[in-house]
């Protein structure tokens, strides 16, 4: 589904990603862990097409297409969803209106007619129930005045609405209390199918108790330096990242 080869990216001339390689197959959940500043969020942003970052080398193939050739909105329409670490507020734009625009753009891309208002509202209702999000949130402007937890729930709700092939969740657990964490993780798990894949970017093992990864990668100084099964997350939790650093130095 996703194949990243020797990906280099920089911001303002400073290289952040220094040759990332990653293969993800349909249905897999990959966790990317690593210390602050390792390049985890940069990787997510580069995959989503944020132009702040310049890709200097490497290729990314998504479902047979050269992802780096596509505009950010087309990557989204192809099925890439980024759950933001810090979801953006859009004052005055209702979540309903925002999602209706987004869903219909996705449909247009696939050559489908826009949804009728009644069908759209039904879809909203179904997905709200699925991810257990309060109508109070979806009736408000996009993320405006939301708490950290509410913003993250809203990301999962949007993910449910758009049914991506590949969801990249960037530090979705940051700023969540344990109840919100459970709601968010449940949402992700319910949306799981044998066809779609998930990249979970996180600092902590905690989230991986709820979203169980098939593969865990450690991103360090712009490269993936270690890849193993889910037990790696536990090891990192217990020992921190310093031992990896030491291993690398050797």
């Amino acid at each position: 589904m996703l194949s990243i080869k020797d990906l280099h990216a920089s911001i303002n001339g400073k290289e952040i990603l220094k040759g990332v390689n990653l293969e993800i197959k349909p249905g897999e959940v990959h966790a990317i862990m690593g210390p602050n500043g390792a390049g985890k969020s940069t990787l997510a942003a580069v995959l989503a097409g944020r132009e702040l970052f310049e890709v200097t080398k490497g290729e990314v193939i998504f479902e047979g297409k050269d992802l780096l050739d596509l505009a950010p909105e087309d990557r989204a329409r192809e099925g890439i969803f980024l759950g933001f670490q810090y979801p953006i507020e859009i004052p005055g734009v209702s979540t309903v209106n925002f999602m209706k625009t987004a869903v219909n753009e996705h449909r247009k891309y696939k050559g489908l007619e826009p949804l009728k208002a009644s069908d759209f509202l039904k879809l909203m209702r179904d997905k709200k129930a699925l991810v257990e999000i309060d109508s109070k949130l979806t009736n408000r402007s996009v993320n405006e005045g939301f708490s950290g937890g509410e913003k993250k729930k809203n990301e999962i709700f949007q993910m449910a609405m758009l049914e991506p092939k590949l969801a990249i969740l960037d530090e979705t657990d940051s700023g969540l209390d344990i109840d919100a964490l459970r709601v968010v993780a449940n949402g992700v798990n319910k949306l799981k199918t044998p066809e779609n894949s998930t990249i979970v970017i996180t600092h902590y093992q905690r989230l991986l108790d709820y979203i169980v990864p098939d593969v865990v990668h450690v991103l360090f100084d712009g490269r993936i330096v270690k890849t193993a099964g889910k037990e790696l997350a536990l090891e990192l939790e217990a020992k921190g990242y310093d031992w990896i650093k030491e291993e690398l130095v050797k």
Binding site: E73, A76, I88, G92, F98
Partner: peptide
Amino acid sequence: GEDQIFYCNQRGISTEDAIGLIVNGYAKE
């Protein structure tokens, strides 16, 4: 904000439509 536009882009909304949405939201009151 560039971040607002990118957020909309990432949901599949083109930059032009994003600006339409944001401006109308801004003027909604």
